[in-house]
């Protein structure tokens, strides 16, 4: 009897792998030291939308990760304070909670760590230091009260707590129930014939080798480890055309020569909404991105039919976006903390 039970379990796990396709969970995992609650998420959302923590008081997280849209900024590379632009295309914040590491090069292990980066990046929010940013928060009485209510303690307004609140909000940015998800859950009519064909093509071509799992961003990795892949892996005319090897990728972070041109595999959820594509944002359409990927990663050239089938399938990964409303922000009547404090 016991043997039968063991055998049953193994068969199940085998089958679920063979099937491979997984719907997006409705809840994202969170670290043990940052459990979500309503007040924390609300605070995080305010901070996410609040431009006062950029040097000029004009750029918020939402400027580049627009949650009213695809969670990005539709630009080649992001524009920060004073119209400055950085080297990379903004990854979508939607479903970012399902990445095992953050940024194209995985230099932040968690959403909490990631939240601290752009604030002090010269071409993004441009603050001189995280201390300067948190000092601004401390000057807004409404925030001080909220931090106290959410985190408690003697000095609740800390950089870490601010990052925790933002991360807690970001973990609510999940887009389940896409046509693909409904199809996987048994609704055969959720996908068109072409999308089903594209799904098969996606699998047989081998796209699924990297773009797998519920977020189409790779296998489940151990804590703090990213799923990095060389891009482009093979030579093709696209390398030069789109400058695909112009920067070093993860090598710049790790210093390990094996990491040259490696990037974290991005999610394909809502990919139809997040053009332009790739780390440098040089490829403007999804069809072209698919055309670039095939020879670059799989050493294959696709027919136009295959490209349009795969694109149709990728369009089925656009999920349902939980309604986002602009939050009320605590104010400092008659006083601008942006003008009053040095950055």
């Amino acid at each position: 009897m016991r043997f039968a039970v063991i055998a049953g379990c193994l068969l199940l796990s085998g089958a679920s792998f063979a099937q491979g396709w997984q719907a997006l969970p409705e809840v994202a995992p969170h670290p043990p030291d940052n459990p979500p609650d309503e007040a924390k998420v609300a605070l995080g959302k305010q901070l996410f939308f609040d431009p006062r923590f950029s040097s000029t008081g004009t750029v918020s997280c939402n400027s580049c990760h627009n949650v009213m849209a695809g969670g990005d900024d539709s630009r080649t590379t992001s524009m920060g304070v004073h119209g400055l632009t950085g080297p990379r295309n903004a990854p979508t914040v939607w479903n970012a909670a399902f990445h095992s590491v953050q940024f194209w090069d995985g230099r932040a292990k968690t959403l909490e760590d990631q939240a601290k980066g752009p604030v002090v990046a010269g071409v993004e929010m441009g603050m001189s230091s995280l201390e300067a940013a948190i000092e601004r928060v401390r000057q807004i009485p409404g925030y001080v009260a909220q931090f106290g209510a959410v985190f408690g303690g003697e000095q609740p307004v800390t950089i870490d707590n601010a990052a925790k609140a933002v991360a807690a909000y970001e973990r609510t940015l999940i887009t389940p129930n896409s046509p693909f998800d409904r199809y996987v859950n048994g609704d055969d009519s959720a996908l068109t014939e072409q999308q089903v064909r594209g799904m098969q093509t996606f699998q047989t071509l081998g796209c699924v080798a990297c773009h797998r799992g519920p977020a189409f961003n790779g296998p489940t990795m151990p804590d703090g480890q990213g799923f990095y892949i060389s891009f482009p892996f093979h030579d093709s005319p696209y390398v030069e055309k789109y400058g695909l090897r112009d920067e070093d990728g993860r090598f710049a972070v790790s210093g390990n020569p094996d990491d040259k041109h490696k990037y974290r595999v991005p999610t394909l959820r809502n990919i139809a909404l997040t053009a332009p594509y790739f780390h440098n944002g040089r490829v403007k359409t999804l069809a072209e991105a698919v055309r670039v990927m095939a020879p670059s990663q799989l050493h294959k050239t696709l027919s136009d039919q295959q490209v349009s089938d795969v694109v149709a399938f990728l369009e089925s990964l656009t999920g349902e976006f939980p309604e986002q409303t602009m939050p009320r922000l605590p104010t400092t009547p008659g006083r601008s903390i942006v003008a009053d404090t040095p950055h």
Partner: peptide
């Protein structure tokens, strides 16, 4: 690495090994 990670690019090998 967990074998399931290898399975993505080496499905044939993984299928043979698993079980």
């Amino acid at each position: 690495g967990d074998p399931s990670i290898c399975a993505g690019c080496h499905p044939r090998q993984y299928k043979g090994w698993k079980g």
